[in-house]
Design a protein around this nucleic acid. Structure first.
Length: 310
DNA sequence: CATGACGCCTGTCAGC
DNA sequence: TGCTGACAGGCGTCAT
């Protein structure tokens, strides 16, 4: 599934293969894939035709292509979304193709930009960029001073040079919640999904159920640093699988299989201490952790022994 | 306001 | 074999 490193790989591919291209035609094959574009699929297509695609920008797992007139084509890949660039002449008809943009590229053969999405959690939309308090993607005074409204509430991510880490540490400790919930909250720091949260917690030797307001600042800083390390490693691995004309978010699946330390390793030995990795239900999904390296907080242990007693 | 639960959606796989 | 249910999971919306 596309997480921040995969989205960044896609952004980079789009920057190199669609910047300067003109949209000659738009085909919306599944209306719900543009459900966030409230005026509807016909309006989406009509307003996109004839436009020229500009810079590719990302924040967390949102990405958008700048258009003229302070507008942008926004994209979220959801769980299974892909943005694929092909030569128009030999573009495959993917089974889960949802939206196709036909592109004219100056001095090059025509291309298509395909939005492919099996589980349809992803979406495209057109949005007017709005000024934001934090100065937008490039910080205050930059030439990218605005965000799509759908991204305005999303915090900067761990690959963003303008991220204020001290502020994130303070915000996490200010929370009255559990550490993993805070890591997944995109309004505190963006881009961390279920997989990277578990990997970061394992590296930091912290259990996700730790109460945020009882963590030391250095513990929060450590887990954030771990999340950044894992994502940078995934980005390096995913970035190498890039073909000149083919943007594939599945390029890093090999990295997942080889490098994940705890996620999905239910019952297998912890790579650090050998104890059996455990899986627990968490927010309608799963958390994986090492019960020895990542001891549960006292409060949770009390509840567990009480439950066992009953 | 802050926090948490839930629904959205499709395909795969284990179990019967 | 064919069916059923669990699971994957980010994010917007609604409830507490």
């Amino acid at each position: 599934m596309p997480e921040l490193p995969e989205v960044e790989t896609v952004r980079d591919g789009l920057a190199r293969h669609t910047t300067g291209a003109t949209v000659t035609d738009v085909e919306v094959l599944r209306a719900s894939s543009v459900r966030r574009h409230l005026p509807g699929p016909a309006d989406f297509a009509a307003r996109l035709r004839g436009r020229t695609l500009g810079a590719a920008v990302r924040r967390g797992k949102f990405l958008w292509l700048l258009l003229d007139d302070d507008e942008a084509l926004t994209a979220h890949l959801g769980m299974s979304g892909q943005l694929l660039v092909h030569h128009a002449a030999d573009a495959p008809e993917h089974r889960h193709l949802r939206v196709r943009l036909n592109l004219a590229v100056p001095g090059a053969p025509d291309r298509v930009l395909d939005f492919v999405d099996q589980r349809t959690f992803g979406h495209l939309a057109l949005a007017e960029l709005v000024p934001t308090a934090d100065g937008g993607p490039g910080g205050r005074g930059s030439d990218l001073p605005a965000l799509p409204p759908a991204v305005a509430h999303i915090a900067r991510d761990l690959l963003d040079p303008y991220l204020d880490r001290d502020a994130v540490v303070a915000a996490v400790r200010w929370r009255r919640s559990e550490l993993k919930r805070a890591l997944l909250d995109q309004t505190l720091v963006s881009g961390i999904g279920n997989i990277y949260a578990d990997e970061a917690l394992w590296r930091a030797r912290l259990d996700g159920a730790r109460p945020t307001d009882r963590l030391r600042p250095v513990q929060v800083r450590t887990v954030l640093g771990a999340a950044e390390e894992v994502m940078r490693a995934a980005l390096r691995a995913g970035g190498t699988s890039f073909d000149a004309m083919y943007v594939d978010v599945n390029g890093s699946s090999g990295w997942f299989e080889r490098e994940l330390a705890v996620y999905g390793r239910d019952g297998l030995p912890c790579l650090r201490c050998g104890a059996s990795v455990v899986r627990r239900p968490f927010m309608n999904r799963s958390s994986y952790s090492c019960p020895r390296c990542q001891p549960r907080p006292r409060s949770v242990r009390r509840l567990q022994s009480a439950a066992a007693f009953l």
